[in-house]
């Protein structure tokens, strides 16, 4: 192999590597819309799982790449100080509502009492607040 070919191959590898690194560094935040859910369950079941045993619910649901599809009834819709839209779903367990957070700047349209299906990633449970979901996408 002559030197010219080696140089071209090396430059190509560097260019591809640089391009991949640039893409990775600047890749946009994405929601769970196109992710296949690992679990499909009602909001009430998710709240109940955390109320029953937070550690085991964390071990099951709070994992990278573990997406959830949640069915529930809208209790509240608001935008927080971080410009994140939030849909809060009703559950039968007090203090264990499911709060679905959307990416900052994404607007959502839902009304209290409406039945919805939301995909997202569970981030855990906070005292007095409930179960939180992030990177959510309103499916229907």
């Amino acid at each position: 192999m002559n030197k010219k070919v080696i140089i071209i191959v090396l430059l190509s590898i560097i260019a591809i590597g640089g391009g991949v690194a640039y893409y990775m560094w600047n890749k946009p935040k994405t929601n769970a819309a196109d992710v296949k859910p690992n679990y499909i369950l009602p909001a009430d079941s998710l709240g109940a799982a955390f109320a029953k045993n937070e550690d085991s619910a964390n071990a099951k649901f709070v994992k990278d790449f573990v997406a959830l599809e949640i069915q529930g009834v809208v209790d509240n819709v608001f935008v927080n100080e971080g410009n994140e839209s939030v849909i809060q779903l009703m559950t039968n367990t007090p203090d264990y509502a499911v709060k679905c957070y959307f990416l900052a700047g994404e607007s959502v349209s839902a009304n209290k009492g409406e039945k919805v299906v939301i995909k997202g990633f569970c981030t855990g449970y906070l005292m007095m607040d409930g179960v939180q979901m992030s990177k959510c996408a309103l499916i229907k």
């Binding site: 560094w25 971080g82 957070y101 990633f121 906070l126 939180q132």
Partner: peptide, 27 residues
């Protein structure tokens, strides 16, 4: 922007909880 705080004035107790995955970075 989604952490919880509770303060009990009578006992002085203060408790803060936050979820690590809820921290948002620029990248």
């Amino acid at each position: 922007y989604k952490s919880t705080i509770i303060i009990d004035q009578a006992t002085g107790a203060v408790q803060v909880e936050t979820l690590i995955k809820s921290f948002e970075f620029e990248k």
